[in-house]
């Protein structure tokens, strides 16, 4: 038992320092109840669909999402738009295809198999249009930031007037959750910026939550099946462990009785 305790404390000490990436700047992120956390965590379908709306109407004008395809929008475990809806979404985008038999590139409406259309042709173009700052690709953004979903959720609501001792250059904004507090992105959300089809009140807080949920899904599209399989796997392992434990006791009882 003493040894077990030692082992556990070793494991904890090993894992604990993994907050190192943002240990230097301790900020309390805003918290909300994420439906996808926990053993049985699932995405809130309606929130994902609203989140997609926020992404496509607000974020997508600057931020690409190059690892997603329109078909993903209709796949299980995601926003689960119907196939017809996903097709309609895809066809609302112009996709460059080709070359055709004349050797010309041409545009056509998007299909389910197309990747999300990018707002800029390349990184340089994106930088040129945004005062030198590249709006990061959002496909895996929540996994690429130390605080994950809480960080993104807080950042979207973290715009404030700069304290008097902080001077900001043109095109730079103050955000209390941003690393170094200076951000090149103007506050992207304001109350009522989008009009939700399901009548949800589009507050900044609500939009932040929805779009962050959508970003969690885009970074981890198989999160739901991971949680489901994980639960089954662990229950299976526990049952097997108990059975093996009793078999072991039985087998070893021969030895112990001999001694």
């Amino acid at each position: 038992m003493k040894n077990l305790f030692k082992l556990l404390s070793i494991i904890i000490v090993i894992i604990a320092p993994n907050s190192y990436s943002f240990a230097a700047e301790k900020v309390e992120y805003l918290k909300t109840d994420w439906s996808f956390k926990g053993l049985f965590g699932k995405f809130d379908r309606a929130s994902l669909q609203r989140g997609y709306q926020v992404y496509t109407e607000v974020c997508a004008s600057c931020h690409s999402m190059k690892y997603l395809s329109y078909r993903n929008l209709a796949e299980p475990g995601g926003p689960e738009f119907s196939e017809a809806q996903a097709k309609a979404i895809a066809s609302s985008f112009e996709v460059t295809d080709g070359p055709n038999s004349d050797g010309e590139m041409f545009t056509r409406p998007g299909k389910l198999s197309d990747k999300f259309v990018m707002p800029y042709d390349n990184v340089k173009a994106a930088q040129a249009a945004n005062g030198g700052a590249y709006p990061p690709d959002m496909s895996v953004l929540v996994k690429a930031r130390g605080g994950g979903v809480d960080y993104i959720y807080s950042l979207l609501q973290g715009y404030e007037d700069a304290p008097s001792n902080v001077s900001l250059d043109d095109g730079v904004y103050y955000n209390k959750y941003m690393y170094g507090n200076k951000i090149r992105m103007a506050a992207p959300l304001s109350d009522g910026l989008v009009e939700y089809g399901d009548g949800t009140n589009a507050t900044v807080e609500q939009m932040s939550k929805d779009v962050t949920t959508f970003l969690m899904w885009s970074a981890e599209p198989h999160l739901e099946s991971r949680h489901q399989m994980g639960f089954k796997a662990i229950v299976y392992l526990i049952i097997l462990t108990v059975l093996v434990y009793f078999s072991m006791k039985r087998i070893w009882s021969r030895v112990e009785s001999e001694v």
Binding site: L39, R226, H227, M229, G230, F231, A233, I234, L237, I238, L240, T241, V244, Y245, S247, M248, I251, W252, V255
Partner: peptide, 23 residues
């Protein structure tokens, strides 16, 4: 004797392993 004991310990280890992989 050792096979079953190692097997039991391995299963305990796999539970921890599975926790990291899935959660």
């Amino acid at each position: 004797y050792i096979v079953i004991k190692d097997g039991f310990a391995l299963l305990m280890f796999m539970i921890v392993f599975a926790f990291f992989v899935f959660y």
